[in-house]
Design a protein around this nucleic acid. Structure first.
Length: 283
DNA sequence: AGATGAGCCTGAAGGC
DNA sequence: TGCCTTCAGGCTCATC
């Protein structure tokens, strides 16, 4: 599922329930996801209060009162379900890999069919100096004034395409394939244009459109394609607002005439209006 | 430094 | 209906 808006909506939904609570038991149904689960996970975090639930890029972070942070990444197909502990009718699914029971009688279920996600446990005060957090670019929803120049400066150092640059977590954190396509369409920039050819004004415009797309997606509860759902199982609705992504052969909403094209860029799908975005596949 | 391909996995969708 | 192939929202690694 998860790009920044999906992780953010999950974060906002679980925050009021988890902050101040603790996990009283942790059931792991397999030894690993993409990587092994942190050793002695239950022993290390059970019965410690969760001080803060927050997000950095596409990572969900749970800070505990004894100085450890549980990092959860949802990979491609991960989701988090939060439901009352005594709910009748919960049937453990084949991909419910971790079930964490909370002190306030909820269970947090980590479900991930493809298992590209992972858990990591690290000291909270060292998080910023650890991989991958020490490499991440600014949060795109930080105050515009603070990050605009950083964004521009980082683009200036990149002789790769704009699409690649937006997906590069070192330039701007949390953007994935959907929202990169949407932001580029909205700003009318070709995904194939080289990142270091943008002027400060153009980089500013792109960042504004990126912020707009991400904020609207969060307000809509994220995008539900196959896997994403909010922890209460409601789905996100931003997929109905896609202007480029998954709209191949449908008219562009800018020019109303050109059909959106699906192109392959670095092995991944890119959607654009070849007229409005002046898309020419770079040679 | 950047591009490319492979790999980690499963399930949905489409073609035949 | 069933089998096969392709594709998918992320990220890392090796190689060129």
């Amino acid at each position: 599922m998860p790009e920044l808006p999906e992780v953010e909506t999950v974060c906002q939904a679980i925050k009021p329930i988890l902050e101040g609570a603790s996990f009283k038991s942790i059931q792991l149904n397999r030894p690993n996801l993409r990587y092994p689960f942190p050793p002695h996970l239950e022993k290390n975090i059970a019965c410690h209060s969760i001080l803060k639930v927050h997000r950095r890029a596409k990572y969900l972070l749970l800070d505990f009162d004894h100085g450890l942070t549980l990092i959860m990444h949802l990979g491609m197909s991960g989701r988090i379900i939060l439901e009352p502990l005594d709910i009748i009718g919960y049937k453990q699914g084949p991909h419910d890999h971790a079930i964490l029971a909370t002190s306030n009688n909820y269970k947090l279920i980590y479900r991930d069919p493809r298992r590209f996600g992972f858990f990591q446990l690290e000291p909270t005060d060292r998080l910023q100096s650890l991989n991958p957090f020490n490499k991440l670019g600014p949060e795109p929803l930080e105050s515009f004034e603070i990050i605009a120049s950083q964004f521009y400066n980082r683009l200036q150092l990149k002789s790769t395409s704009l699409k690649s640059a937006l997906l590069d977590q070192r330039i701007i954190a949390g953007v994935g394939n959907i929202y990169a396509s949407e932001a580029l369409w909205q700003a009318k920039f070709s995904p194939f244009r080289l990142a270091n050819t943008l002027t400060l004004e153009e980089a500013t415009l792109l960042l504004r459109e990126l912020q707009d797309v991400l904020k609207r997606a969060i307000a809509a509860g994220g995008s539900t394609l196959r896997d994403h759902a909010l922890p209460n199982k409601e789905i996100g609705y931003f997929q109905h607002q896609f202007k480029a992504y998954k709209r191949e052969n449908q008219p562009c909403y800018h020019c109303k005439t050109t059909l959106i094209t699906k192109l392959n860029q670095h092995g991944r799908a890119t959607y654009c209006c070849q007229y409005c975005q002046r898309c020419q596949v770079a040679t």
